[in-house]
């Protein structure tokens, strides 16, 4: 016999269901007066936030090509200097005017999601390497049994993307473009395909 390790098991995931908005964005779902605003809604920046203002928009699309109209999307990103506003950030203090976290539902009639944020800086990886600027995504919805994690990268960062150790880990190079947004001025379009030929790369992190 040996000593038991004694670790607990993570609670099993269950789908967010069709009414995730009630819990996470109640004002959006029509329940007004309980919370003043929906947590994580609105622009991620304020007047004092450092960095280039950008819009990130897109759809979460199912295997038939139909946009989901009941998804909830969260993003988490570094500030303009590549620092996270988190106690686990050990390299310095992030911009106090930028939390770096946002949450939005897809539009109930079209499914489109929109974030108003800033472009993040590059973030260090192991061994002195750097990750190209990116935004981390987490997607839940009815029919999604466990939250899906992916990343959006920036198309104008060709050199940094080519050196990015996470993108570099993707064996099938043909899939890399699923993580790179399309740019039009300061607006980036990032569609998340759950299935099909252009299925987005999702991560087990």
């Amino acid at each position: 016999m040996v000593q038991p390790l004694g670790y607990l098991k993570e609670s099993a995931s269950q789908t967010a269901g069709p009414y995730v908005h009630i819990g996470c964005t109640p004002n959006f779902s029509g329940i007004e007066g309980v919370f003043e605003t929906d947590l994580g809604s609105g622009p991620l920046y304020n007047d004092k936030t450092k960095g280039e203002r950008i819009t990130v928009r897109g759809f979460v699309i199912d295997g038939s090509g139909t946009p989901l109209k009941d998804a909830l999307i969260e993003i988490w990103q570094a500030d303009a200097d590549g620092l996270y506003n988190s106690p686990s950030e050990t390299r310095g203090s992030a911009d106090p005017n930028f939390l770096g976290w946002g949450r939005t539902p897809g539009d109930m009639s079209t499914g489109e999601f929109v974030f108003e944020t800033i472009k993040p800086g590059k973030v260090p990886f192991k061994g002195g390497r750097w990750m190209a600027p990116h935004i981390t995504f987490w997607v839940v919805a009815r029919g999604i049994n466990i939250g899906l994690q992916t990343r959006m990268y920036f198309p104008e960062e060709e050199e940094a993307n080519a050196a990015d150790p996470v993108l570099g880990r993707i064996e099938h190079r043909v899939r890399v473009p699923t993580l790179i947004a399309k740019k039009d001025g300061n607006t980036y379009t990032f569609n998340i395909n759950l299935q099909g030929e252009n299925e987005t790369v999702f991560f087990d992190i």
Binding site: E89, T136, N145, R169, E199
Partner: peptide, 28 residues
């Protein structure tokens, strides 16, 4: 659970040891 049929990724997840971008998180 029928809704999962068209909403389930079919390819293997790419394994990624957590980086700064995942081990950090905001404080509420």
């Amino acid at each position: 659970y029928k809704t999962s049929v068209l909403r389930s990724p079919q390819r293997a997840l790419i394994s990624l040891e957590g980086t700064k971008s995942e081990i950090t998180g905001p404080v509420f």
